[in-house]
Design a protein around this nucleic acid. Structure first.
Length: 647
DNA sequence: GTAGGGTTAG
């Protein structure tokens, strides 16, 4: 404070004509938290023509100066003796309302350092952090609040929750809400409408909304028109048409007059099932209640007709929309074009699309993407690609859907150059690919037989956390195997296997049939060890024989056990191959003895040629006696087992 | 001047 006062301040800021009231009086008023402007009885004095206009109070002019300052923090520091928390809040809101997020955070930080935060500061700041898409910062600031009364203050809580919901962090908003309740929050209707709006885009949103409605009822709250509005929208987006009707009626019964938003939500709920009879009745109700349908209502009605296949009525309505100037953007056309396309009236759709263009209606890509996809689906690949090119020539901006749509059109006509242009556009526009993008590319690379690119794309897709398409990837796994890339094939297998979903049982055998001929026996062993029950005897046998012949000798016994666990009786020739391997490596005698012991335990025995081989070479192991004993024990055990089998 | 919601197209 002292430091600030000693700064070389420009004289004009403080030495302007004496303020009214005096600084001392202002300080006195502000300490008692009385607005100086109100305390001064200027309004009662008859204004004289000759009197100068009243001067703003020092606090008000300080606020004005900070708002106008190029560096708000420096300006705040200059006025820190004058400004109070509510003044700083005005400044904070100013930066929020003018969307100067950087200054907003700096002002908040300054207030924090100077211990000048109150409930209103937090509430406003969280609201603006929501608008500036910065929920992480809101959580950080909220988490740092130590005082419990502030932490559980209802408007602070509501604004943090609102910030999360606005940014799509629905799950964390519900979690945080539970925590707030545990800490002592008493929610109000604002809290509930905030949380309910989070249910709109949630998969299980309707169920969650019901929970919240029950909770607010049990706390003794009455639903108001805002809550009903949110609920109707939730019903519409979750295809709960009857529930929407019920709420609409209940709301009316409780004396709330529905507005156009309520009507359009219910109308939208009717459009999902194309319930045009009810929609027509609702329109009558709307008009008789004195409301006038607006663009959105009429466009939603068009959706009802279009989804219901009532194309004549839809066309009439579109003409009406055009006449009212409500068809200046492409949306109503898109609705009708989409309806026609879904009824396979693709050429009618095309005619309407061309009409729209001739009328000079600008497309941001929606109408184009509907037509491009429709042509592609209908097998009109070249026409589809031509439209993609037309859009590309007219429009510089793309979004993810339009990029995916164009990409598919180019891929299916094998236009590699255009594919690459689309990928570059994607990079330039900072658009992250989604699962559709990846699968389109993977399919294309596979079709074009550039398997290494298909493989790279699968890797990329997996790294970015997308669920792989099993059918497609397993096809590429096979192709990689055939093309001589068994390690890559195995890597695709692992990405599928260790992705979240369970994989098709036949996948294991497929990869095994790639790994074994390629000599990747250790990888093959990994596959067999975990999935032997899904692998055919034939493939198991091939694997075991190959492994005994050239697999890692230290794993031979493990492989035997794994194959045995599948329920398959290991054939003699496989044991024979294993024994030949061991004889070549006398230093592995312990492993050999283990194998022979294990065989005895499982009722296996070596055949006569292996037996002779062993006895002949027993001195190599220096265990002639021991080996002879084991073999004779094995024969005895085996005799009993085979007798048992014969019975 | 602390906090709330909702409508149409790929």
């Amino acid at each position: 404070m002292e430091a600030a006062a000693s700064l070389p301040l420009p004289a004009s800021r403080f030495l302007s004509p004496p303020p009214h009231p005096t600084p001392a009086a202002a300080a006195c008023c502000s300490r008692r938290n009385i607005s100086c402007a109100r305390a001064a009885p200027r309004a009662l004095e008859a204004p004289q023509a000759s009197r100068p206009p009243p001067r703003p109070s020092p606090r008000r002019s300080a606020v004005a100066e900070v708002k106008a300052a190029p560096d708000p923090v420096a300006a705040l520091t200059r006025f820190e003796d004058v400004l109070q928390t509510q003044d700083c809040n005005i400044i904070l809101r100013h930066y929020g309302e003018t969307r100067r997020w950087d200054e907003l955070s700096k002002v908040f930080g300054w207030m924090q350092e100077h211990d000048m935060l109150n409930i209103a500061s937090y509430s406003s700041y969280f609201k603006f952090l929501g608008l500036s898409r910065n929920p992480a910062r809101a959580l950080q600031v909220y988490g740092a609040i130590r005082e419990n009364p502030t932490r559980i203050h209802v408007s602070v809580c509501n604004s943090v929750l609102g910030c999360l919901v606005k940014n799509g962090r629905f799950d964390s908003s519900f979690k945080l809400y539970d925590e707030m309740i545990r800490e002592g929050l008493s929610p109000d209707l604002f809290t509930y409408s905030t949380l309910l709006s989070g249910c709109m885009k949630l998969k299980q949103g309707y169920t969650k909304a019901l929970e919240l409605v029950n909770e607010l009822n049990s706390r003794g709250f009455q639903m108001d028109s805002v809550i009903y509005g949110t609920l109707l929208a939730i019903c519409a987006s979750h295809n709960c048409c009857e529930k929407a009707e019920e709420y609409f009626q209940k709301m009316k019964d409780e004396g709330h007059k529905p507005n156009l938003f309520h009507y359009s939500s219910l109308l939208n709920a009717y459009s999902e099932n194309a319930n045009y009879e009810k929609a027509d009745l609702l329109m009558k109700d709307l008009r008789s209640s004195g409301l006038t349908p607006n663009k959105v209502i009429l466009t939603t009605l068009l959706k009802v007709y279009s989804k219901g296949g009532l194309f004549e009525k839809a066309r009439e309505l579109l003409t009406e929309l055009e006449a009212s100037g409500f068809a200046q953007d492409e949306m109503p056309y898109c609705i009708l074009i989409d309806g026609l396309v879904k009824e396979r009236k693709i050429w009618e759709a095309m005619i309407l699309f061309n009409d729209m263009k001739e009328k000079g209606v600008k497309s941001d890509g929606y109408a184009f993407s509907i037509m491009i996809s429709a042509l592609h689906r209908g097998g009109y690949r070249e026409e589809s690609k031509q439209l993609a090119k037309e859009f590309e020539a007219k429009n510089a901006t793309y979004d993810l859907v339009m990029l995916n749509t164009s990409l598919r059109a180019y891929c299916s006509t094998n236009d590699m150059e255009s594919v690459m242009i689309m990928l570059r556009k994607m990079d330039e526009s900072n658009i992250s690919p989604d699962a559709i993008t990846f699968n389109t590319l993977i399919r294309y690379f596979c079709m074009a037989k550039v398997y290494h690119l298909a493989y790279k794309t699968i890797q990329d897709m997996h790294t970015k956390g997308h669920q792989l398409n099993e059918e497609l990837c397993s096809e590429i796994m096979m192709q990689l195997g055939e093309a001589g890339f068994p390690s890559e094939a195995f890597s695709v297998y692992n990405m599928l296997r260790y992705g979240k979903r369970t994989v098709c049982k036949s996948l294991h055998e497929k990869v095994l049939c790639i790994l074994v001929p390629a000599g990747l026996l250790k990888d093959a062993y990994v596959v067999v060890k975990d999935n032997s029950e899904f692998i055919s005897r034939r493939s198991l046998g091939n694997f075991a024989r190959s492994f005994m012949a050239s697999g890692n000798i230290n794993l031979i016994n493990d492989v035997m056990k794994a194959v045995h666990r599948s329920g398959w009786r290991i054939s003699q020739d496989i044991f024979g191959k294993a024994i030949q391997r061991y004889i070549q490596k006398p230093d592995k005698k312990q492993l050999l003895l283990c194998l022979l012991d294990w065989m005895t335990g499982q009722g296996y025995s070596v055949d006569s040629s292996s037996r002779n081989l062993l006895l002949r070479n027993a001195q190599l192991f220096g265990q002639k006696q021991l080996i002879a004993e084991i073999l004779s024990k094995q024969q005895g055990a085996s005799r009993i087992t085979s007798q048992r089998h014969q019975k």
